[in-house]
Amino acid sequence: MPPALVTHLPATPSDRPDDVRLAQNGDTEAFARLYRLHVGRINALALRLTGERRKAEELVQDAFVRAWQKLGTFRGESALPTWLHRLTVNVFLLDDRSDRRRALRELPEESAPESMAAIPRPAMETEDRIDLERAIARLPDGARIAFVLHDIHGYDHAEIAAMSGVAPATIRVQLHRARRRLKEMLDP
């Protein structure tokens, strides 16, 4: 995975190398320790991809269940956090794939208004900038996915295209759309 603006955490003292091997042999307690160690990062990714807490929780659960199922294929070529990260993205894009792909494919119509006027804003946020997390959550699905994967987590257009089955040019358009909308929301 390419360099990302939001970097991985350094290894922590609680990162027990044996836990991966134990979990691969069916030790759920070892897998629970891996979950505790990595859930914060996976949840952060899930929140940004889905834009909703409930959907993020579902994605986190799906990702760890899939990780349990696929752990036997983990050979350590990449770091476990990197493996988990990519697996989560794949679960997100492939689970209910048609919806994700449709969202990425849906491009804004030329005549469609893309201004803050189209985005409802709570009263408490009218006097100042809304933070980036909330702005990301308000992006249209396709734009949000492209922005999170490309600008936050460092995937390139081709990788996103390959994972989602959507043309790289479409990803570029979604990214452009996301940046423009974010600029409007953050610096009105």
């Binding site: 603006l5 939001v6 970097t7 991985h8 955490l9 759920t28 629970a32 979950y35 505790r36 859930v39 914060g40 990062r41 949840n43 952060a44 929140l47 807490r53 993020a56 929780e57 986190v60 659960q61 760890f64 269940v65 349990w68 980036l132 997390e133 600008d151 936050i152 940046r179 974010l182 600029k183 953050l186 610096d187």
Partner: peptide, 24 residues
Amino acid sequence: ALRARIADLPAEVMPERDLWGDIR
């Protein structure tokens, strides 16, 4: 400016509830 904001995003956000029970 957007790049700076992205760099300030936390790498970790803990779930509001413990999901391990459901996963287990």
